[in-house]
Simulated scan of single mutants.
Amino acid sequence: MKPEIAVLDIQGQYRIHTEFYRSDTPQNTIILVNGSMSTTASFAQTVKNLHPHLNVVLYDQPYAGQSKPHNRHQTPLTQELEADVLLELIEHFDVQYVLSFSWGGTAALTALASSPRRIEKAVISSFSPLINVPMRNYLERGRRCLADCNRTQVGNLVNDTLGKHLPSLFKRFNYRHVSTLAEHEYAQMHFHINQVLSGDPQCYLKATQRIEIPVLFINGEWDEYTAANDARQFAYAIRDSQFVSVENTGHFLDMEHKQASHISKIALLDFLKPPAPVITRPAQRLSVAL
């Protein structure tokens, strides 16, 4: 299953690496939005769960992954600019569905609040509108070690908190990736954390009041950082919202174990796939001999 690779020019400002997994018999297309410090590679299991049921689009933010060599990294991107990139890609690939992971939810929800005409449904996974005590502690610690560009501390922090329920092999991959990022990527995450900690804690809920499409929120039962109960606050802002809590699972959901991947797959496809058409047969005429 090899994707079609393209580097797209977005608004004359950014060059975006994209991967398009085309299905032979697709009904719709979904775009996946990365979390912070992650790349298209982070969605390997999610792609397996969604394809070939759907066409799947992956992309790297301008500062990350395979988009990184194509861009100048002079100033950090705001969540509004990340949302603009997402909206351009939605138009380019004729996307009907959006799925975000973790802090990718900020760009996804900001984009959805502008009511993009093509989008019919969205899934927001491992995200919460509230900065609870565990998340605030994580962000404060992250802000310090990112400012110092302390690679060892950054790698250990992610694995000891958000990634605490990952298998050991995934933890090693995660540490290697996070601890070897470029300095501008650390600066981007530091900027993002400052935005979150200094912003209005109700901003996500206020922005999402304009979202009218169905939205599914998926959180891990063991995730204390973006807790399932906190995510349910979106029910007050988004009229057509649904919630799934994956048992025995933390922040990284389908990456943590096979059962979590299976449950996540079922939840996604049940929500996204259109219902099977109802086949009606013409009524039979009965003749009665008189």
Rank of each mutant, 00 (worst) to 15 (best):
T152L: 04
Y236E: 12
Q233M: 12
K206L: 13
I124Q: 04
C145R: 03
I124A: 08
T110R: 00
Y186I: 00
D270V: 08
K48D: 09
L268S: 06
Q79W: 10
T46Y: 02
A187E: 05
A187S: 03
G163H: 10
F234L: 03
L197T: 06
A64P: 00
L181M: 02
S128F: 05
R232Y: 07
L216G: 15
I131D: 03
I213H: 03
L81C: 14
V158F: 13
R144Q: 11
L272M: 13
Q61I: 05
P26H: 09
V56F: 00
P274A: 15
I279G: 00
T152K: 00
W103T: 08
P69M: 06
R22S: 10
D148Y: 05
R144K: 06
L109E: 05
L286T: 12
Y225S: 06
R172Q: 15
Y236F: 11
L81H: 15
R210P: 01
P76N: 03
R232I: 09
K206I: 15
D9Q: 11
V196F: 08
N137L: 13
H192F: 10
L268I: 07
N71Q: 04
V246I: 11
I279H: 05
S102R: 01
W103Q: 09
V246D: 05
S245L: 04
Y138M: 11
T46G: 03
Q66V: 00
L81K: 15
V215D: 15
T249R: 00
T46N: 01
R285M: 08
A237P: 11
Y14N: 08
L197E: 02
A113P: 11
R22A: 14
T152G: 00
E212D: 14
P129E: 08
I279Q: 01
L290H: 10
V123H: 05
N156T: 10
S261T: 08
F243K: 05
